[in-house]
Nucleic acid binder design. Structure first.
Lengths: 134, 134
DNA sequence: GTAAACGATAGAGTGAACTCTAACGCAAGC
DNA sequence: GCTTGCGTTAGAGTTCACTCTATCGTTTAC
């Protein structure tokens, strides 16, 4: 598959995909060159880019991803090391969720506070909005 | 309180605090100048900086925070507008939590996959680690 | 066969959020 | 009174993750 198709499949820009390759996030298993020098991507490339997108959202930087994916690819890490990395990520993710819960609590508190100081007719309007939102 | 103390209380750097002020995230209610031109911070400053830190983690940019906080301060926003902003943030936050759940699912799947391919003695070691981590 | 669309490259530019530096003035401890 | 440390400023530099530009070659549709 050519770069445009991959870009559509992963919702990344063409620029970004080339940039990731340059940064070492993709290798020969993901990209090859055709005779005309065009890049040719495997299905694995799609998988990897989607994985990168996901892990980015748990706070992995590109350079961390590069390291862990490369080490994983070259089997430079033992199973134990990989398991430990995963466990750490699970811990981080749970922590992030807790933070979000805290923030949700705060937002709800802010909402109650605002609503309490409103006149009855506005209060009703807002209540329907809150119903809609939840 | 002087800048160093505020930096310690908020776990922000002195540079960052001055940077936030320059960006319009703090005003006269938070900072005043002493005769020697040193900044003098109120307790409200601590509150605001901690609030900024929290909201940043739900994906608010500094410029968005500047806008919403300034409008809030100057009562340029109606109660309804503020409620709508809060509702939007609640929605965003819930969405972020769902994403994290997805990622947690993926990480657990990765973990199971790894553990399945391990030898029994290593498996046991990993199992205790997993117990510890959860 | 030619124009439009697609692909390639090197390298510059962007925006967000810091982070640091140099050069200076005040302050507190000895 | 001198050193050390804290505070000030303007402005430069950094990092991250893109994003875009210019210039070129290739492919495809008409």
């Amino acid at each position: 598959m050519k770069i445009r198709e991959l870009a559509e499949k992963t919702a990344l820009s063409i620029h970004t995909i080339r940039f990731y390759e340059k940064e070492g996030l993709l290798d020969h298993r993901h990209v090859l060159r055709e005779e005309n020098n065009y890049r040719c991507y495997s299905d694995e490339a799609t998988e990897r880019l989607l994985l990168i997108k996901k892990l980015q959202r748990v706070g992995c930087s590109l350079s961390e991803l590069k390291d862990i994916l490369q080490e994983h690819d070259t089997h430079a890490l033992t199973d134990l090391e990989i398991v430990e990395w995963i466990l750490q990520k699970i811990k981080d993710t749970k922590h992030k969720k807790e933070e979000l819960d805290q923030i949700l609590g705060m937002l709800h508190w802010m909402l109650d506070y605002r609503v309490a100081s409103m006149k009855d007719d506005q209060k009703e309007l807002v209540m329907t909005k809150i119903q809609e939102a939840t």
